[in-house]
């Protein structure tokens, strides 16, 4: 479904990504781990066209992403941010329905109906008229997830979705991600939650200094790491 070949991204003199190769099948759950600054987020942002790669190819359904119209591609590839990035001046229901209405995927009534249904599933229906600043971090992230899901994407990219949350909220959001995964969604998650990664991932990618250094099943990565840097990283996280 997603194919990345020889992806390179440089920011001026900083080499953020060096020759990334990654293929993602439909329904696969990929978890990317690695020390901060290793290029995990940049990789997601390149897939989502938020960054333009310096060189290399990213293909979605066998067509290069840069050949898509951005609005078409971004409906198919959703993105969840660490800081939620809810629209501060809009109520929760408007946050969720803005894109489907403006992109003319749904009428206003359809969008509202679907949004309310999804809010109910996440037990947030009484927050529909509130503003983002009135919600807790966990609630905001759940709204951000709904906002992305309402467009029926085929892939969701999650950039440290629990990175700004307190432990209680982390659990809630991770449970929701597991629910979404059960429905067969293709997901690429950047996270520091190692227990979640172990449980959730079909495949774990360990990145360091802009490269994928080791990849494998969560069992292979966490129980039998081969690469020295990966061993070091896992030890550091344990302690």
């Amino acid at each position: 479904m997603l194919e990345i070949k020889n992806l390179v991204k440089h920011f001026d003199k900083v080499k953020a990504l060096e020759d990334i190769n990654l293929t993602v099948q439909k329904g696969e759950k990929i978890v990317i781990i690695g020390p901060s600054g290793c290029g995990k987020s940049t990789l997601l942002r390149c897939i989502n066209l938020l960054e333009t790669p310096t060189s290399g190819i990213i293909k979605y359904r066998d067509v290069e992403t840069k050949k898509y119209k951005r609005d078409v591609l971004c409906q198919k590839i959703g993105m969840i941010f660490q800081n939620y990035n809810l629209f501060n001046h809009l109520t929760i229901i408007k946050n969720i329905t803005l894109a489907p209405i403006k992109l003319k995927i749904m009428t206003k009534e359809e969008a509202y109906k679907k949004a309310m249904k999804m809010l109910k599933l996440m037990k947030l229906e009484d927050k529909a008229g509130n503003y983002p600043r009135e919600l807790s971090g966990g609630e905001k992230q759940r709204v951000a997830i709904i906002r992305s899901l309402i467009l029926s994407p085929e892939i969701i990219l999650l950039d440290e979705p629990t990175g700004a949350l307190d432990p209680e909220n982390i659990k809630d959001v991770l449970e929701i991600l597991k629910d979404i995964a059960k429905d067969g969604m293709t997901m690429i998650v950047v996270t520091h939650e190692m227990n979640f990664a172990r449980e959730f991932a079909d495949r774990v990618e360990f990145m360091d200094k802009g490269m994928i250094v080791e990849e494998g099943t969560s069992k292979a990565i966490f129980d039998h790491p081969k690469n020295e840097r990966l061993k070091e990283f896992l030890n550091k996280i344990k302690s």
Binding site: R70, C74, Q75, G78, F81, N85, L98, A144, L151
Partner: peptide, 23 residues
């Protein structure tokens, strides 16, 4: 305005003008 607002708009597939006008 936080640049995350623009990015969120883009990641939802909204056009530049729409992001400017509505967000």
């Amino acid at each position: 305005v936080d640049k995350g607002q623009m990015e969120a708009g883009r990641s939802l597939g909204l056009k530049y003008r729409q992001i400017m006008n509505y967000i």
